[in-house]
Design a protein around this nucleic acid. Structure first.
Lengths: 340, 340
DNA sequence: CTGAAAGCGCTAACAA
DNA sequence: TTGTTAGCGCTTTCAG
């Protein structure tokens, strides 16, 4: 194994000098720096992560805790993960993967054993035991999403309330006076971190403010449920000319259900969604983006800032962004002309 | 911070004794063991991962390299990841997450810097630069899937050839004499690790053997493509009474396309798939399972065996398993009675 | 069955 | 601008 001493000898300098070249923690003359770097190259030296962690009490590892339970939006999680890993690498950090199943003990073990410098927790529930644990840990953490009991924690999230409102503004601006809202499954409005509630609140408030008639209903991820919800919406809002969908899983079915009820998209009903941009792109739908990649980057950068002892805002809300498209949607991606 | 010395003092033993209690690498009297464990508990001691790695040259970390590029089957990846993490924890290991994007340099860095004891590589391509790198590394690796140039490597995979054959056997056993095959997108048959080709080969060979008429076609993840493929299949095989789908993304559309061509499922055409069991379950379809969880567990166990210096088979092929269901499929999960 | 002590490879004072 | 050196916390020989 190549050690820092080997490199030092090869370059004719002291081990500490090699260390300082690598960390940049003190000025090194250009010549020395170059010579050392060359030695590192030609010897194929890689600093021993454990030794480094031991001596510096910095692991350069961040722990990412994912909610890999059922019902989670996989595409969103994956984009987030990719973004976290690449941003971490930019900061010369590696990513330790944990699952929510490892629970509070897992956090304590990794923090206590110096397995990571900090934590990124995704999808923390309202009454999650980990919230308390994270507070007691001596390591910084960033939560994605913001549970109600988030005081004293650093959270980053899409501004879902603004996102809900943004939909109404957009549609009202187009002249719509009667707008439906098809939301997440009922349980989500209970169990979750509250993003669903916040979206709905933003939507409803904006509708009031703009004098728009609106009705909101949750939808289960079954066709029958979606169909029933669409029917109910049309009964409650006979003049409904626009529909906001905050439920990725059923988005593809909504167009078919509307059609089944004699409404064409976008001729009779303007459809828009709150979802990842790729999904909306595939369906040619206008949407408010769910920016998983920005969230990931942002979360890592906040964590790194905390690691460097900087102050960070308790809550970072990403402003919603609108992606405008024709709205000539395909049901499940099916071109209209192929429908019998 | 609580160190091993603190624990040793608290328990009235030598530090080495504490270490041996933890690692079990030499016999310890029951009394001592209990006393030490109590001290560990009451002090909340967690061994320092870096120090341990430095002293033992074992990190107890395995690196998982994921293909987070577009076009990958997210549900499969996620089940695999969950399984890897939990199996790793059973073996007292943590998981370092890497992406294929980190490439060969990433592998060299982590291996050289003692960031992990071994590697799990998912979805390695035929001409992947990492195959060569993995060979040169001094750390063991397990590949999920098996590239042609896999000699000398340890691979684990579903036996896709047997899976393709299993479909034919099942259908031929039911009396079908004319069977279609709707495969992955065309590019997959070129670029990938070969699982697609192997499935097809298994299917075709079995069809020959059983004297079954068959035709196979690739399908792109667009409705129009699927529809075209279905039409072509029906033209080539006018008597087609069964269809095997090896393409998760379009599975939902196939039923609709068949219907559009006047064929009902399962009355006129028996549909079966090679896909994760949950998907087939949701669609009420018979399938050959894509056992991501078993693969994950198996891969970790193989890696751990290698770490312990045990010999491992070069190739572990999991036998395909059939999940039988009614086959009364929902197109995109839509109950038939709701179709106009 | 248990202790003492020598490193593992690196960083960060302290010196120059 | 650079060198010297004392640990970081643990494992593992070597002794007992």
């Amino acid at each position: 194994m190549v050690t820092i001493v080997d490199v030092a000898k090869h370059a004719g300098v002291a081990p500490s000098t090699v260390s300082y070249v690598l960390t940049g923690k003190r000025p090194i003359s250009a010549q020395t720096s170059v010579r050392v770097r060359e030695s590192i190259q030609s010897l194929g030296y890689h600093p021993h992560a454990g030794a480094r962690a031991l001596a510096s009490s910095r692991t350069n590892v961040l722990a990412l805790v994912l909610p890999l339970r059922e019902g989670v939006q996989l595409p969103v999680v994956m984009r987030f993960v990719t973004s976290v890993v690449s941003t971490a690498r930019e900061q010369d950090m590696d990513v330790l993967l944990m699952t929510a199943a490892q629970g509070a003990d897992g956090l304590r073990r990794v923090a206590g054993g110096a397995g990571a410098d900090g934590f990124l927790l995704m999808d923390v529930g309202l009454d999650d035991e980990r919230v308390q644990v994270v507070r007691e840990l001596d390591r910084p953490a960033v939560l994605i999403g913001h549970p109600a009991a988030a005081a004293g924690l650093t959270c980053v999230d899409l501004d879902f309330e603004a996102a809900g409102a943004r939909c109404v503004e957009h549609l009202a601006g187009l002249g719509h006076r009667s707008i439906g809202f098809l939301g997440a499954p009922g349980v989500v409005y209970a169990r979750n971190t509250g993003y669903a509630q916040r979206t709905l609140a933003g939507f409803s408030t904006a509708a009031m403010r703009r004098g728009v008639v609106s009705t909101a209903l949750p939808a289960e991820p079954r066709y029958a449920s979606v169909h029933a919800v669409v029917r109910t919406l049309l009964r409650e809002l006979p003049q409904m000319s626009a529909l906001v969908v905050h439920n990725e899983a059923v988005l593809g079915w909504v167009v078919e259900c509307l059609r089944a009820e004699g409404r064409r998209v976008p001729d009779d009903v303007t459809l828009m969604a709150i979802c990842p941009d790729e999904l909306a792109e595939r369906m040619r739908l206008t949407c408010v983006r769910l920016p998983a990649d920005v969230l990931g980057r942002c979360a890592v950068e906040l964590l790194v800032a905390k690691l460097n002892g900087q102050q960070t805002p308790a809550l970072t809300l990403l402003p919603p962004e609108l992606s405008s498209r024709t709205g000539r949607a395909f049901p499940s991606g099916i071109p209209g002309k192929l429908i019998p």
